[in-house]
Computed example of a mutant assay.
Amino acid sequence: MILHHHPFLPACRFARLALAEHAIDVELKLEPFWEARPEFVAINPGLTLPMAYDNGRGPLIGARVLMEYIDERYGDMRAAHRLMPADPFQRGEVRRLVDWFLIKFEDEVSGPLVTERILKLEIPAKRGGGAPDSGAMRAARQNIVGHMHYLGALTASRHWLAGDSLSFADLAAAAALSTVDYLGEAPWDADPAVKQWYQRVKSRPAFRPLLTDKARLVAPAPHYADLDF
């Protein structure tokens, strides 16, 4: 599969985790979406990432679309460990939590922090780059506390976020948190149970490539690649 991505967009990290959990070979293509390459705009006018092609078929645009495709096309490979549960109610809960972390958490926390601290350093000023907005970062740092408490409530009552088994919900949440953790902005002391859950996801083989990602102009937090932090 060919995956057009940016390494610090949570939706792209989620796609990479989902593909790795299904042992799907992937060719990564870095897509600086702000450049709006004519070839990219022609097939993806919304400039949405991730975007994938599978054996020449595509494009599959957006993390949710790709999640559903991976489950329908490759889900049987995981047999009893499928990342989308068989029960309709549980499937609904997985999708709800995926949206929570790829939309709500993105809007309130990871999006502002990644944009202000990483992307604005890569994007030319004429396309929206430049100095970070301290107000946006301050709001994100306030917002993340509530999200950590919500994660704590989920981990207190469930083995994994959506139930008894690892699911796409865990991958979406971990993908979103990993971008914040790279920047040293995750308040792990807010809830020890959340840290323990994240360590379990972070220790999975599928997660290892994310721990080698490096932003061009921003170094990772010292503990970022440590499994026992």
Rank of each mutant, 00 (worst) to 15 (best):
R78Y: 06
L113Y: 03
C12M: 09
L28A: 10
D170P: 13
A20T: 09
L102V: 03
R64W: 08
G75P: 03
G184L: 07
G58T: 05
M84A: 05
L177T: 03
D181R: 00
F40M: 07
P192Y: 08
K29D: 00
I70L: 13
I123K: 04
R127H: 09
A186P: 01
R57Y: 10
P205F: 10
D25W: 04
M137F: 02
H5N: 11
V180P: 01
S134D: 15
D133L: 03
A80N: 15
A193W: 00
P45H: 00
K29Y: 01
P124C: 03
G130R: 10
R16A: 15
Y224S: 10
A80M: 12
R208Y: 05
A172H: 09
A20Q: 11
A131T: 14
M51S: 02
A15G: 11
A221C: 10
A221Q: 07
D87T: 08
S165Y: 14
L83E: 04
P222S: 07
D228Y: 08
I123D: 00
R57D: 15
L60Q: 10
H6F: 10
H5Q: 14
V145T: 13
I103M: 06
S167I: 06
L97G: 03
A156V: 03
P192A: 09
A15Y: 09
P220L: 05
G184P: 06
A42T: 04
N55L: 12
L151C: 04
A176I: 01
E93H: 02
E106F: 05
Q196P: 06
D107H: 08
K195D: 15
G46C: 00
P45Q: 02
D71G: 00
A20L: 09
A175P: 06
A215E: 01
R82Y: 03
M51C: 06
P38A: 04
L83A: 03
H81L: 12
Y182P: 01
L113A: 02
L166S: 09
I2S: 04
R117L: 15
N44V: 06
V98C: 08
A190P: 00
P32S: 04
K214F: 13
L183H: 07
Q142I: 07
Y182E: 06
R57A: 15
D71I: 00
E106D: 09
H223Y: 12
P124F: 03
L3D: 09
E108R: 10
P7Y: 07
G146H: 13
L183R: 05
R138A: 15
Y53L: 11
G75C: 03
F105S: 00
Y182R: 07
I123C: 05
E21K: 12
G62S: 05
S157P: 01
D25P: 04
E39R: 08
L97M: 08
D76I: 08
L121P: 00
F40H: 14
V114P: 00
L210A: 12
A125E: 15
G130Q: 13
W34I: 02
F229C: 11
E39F: 01
E72S: 14
F101G: 04
A206W: 05
D189Y: 01
T155H: 11
Q196L: 14
W197T: 11
S157Q: 15
R13E: 14
W100M: 11
D87E: 12
L9R: 12
L30I: 13
A36I: 04
L102W: 03
P59F: 06
T48H: 01
E72H: 11
N55I: 01
P209H: 10
W34F: 12
E39Q: 10
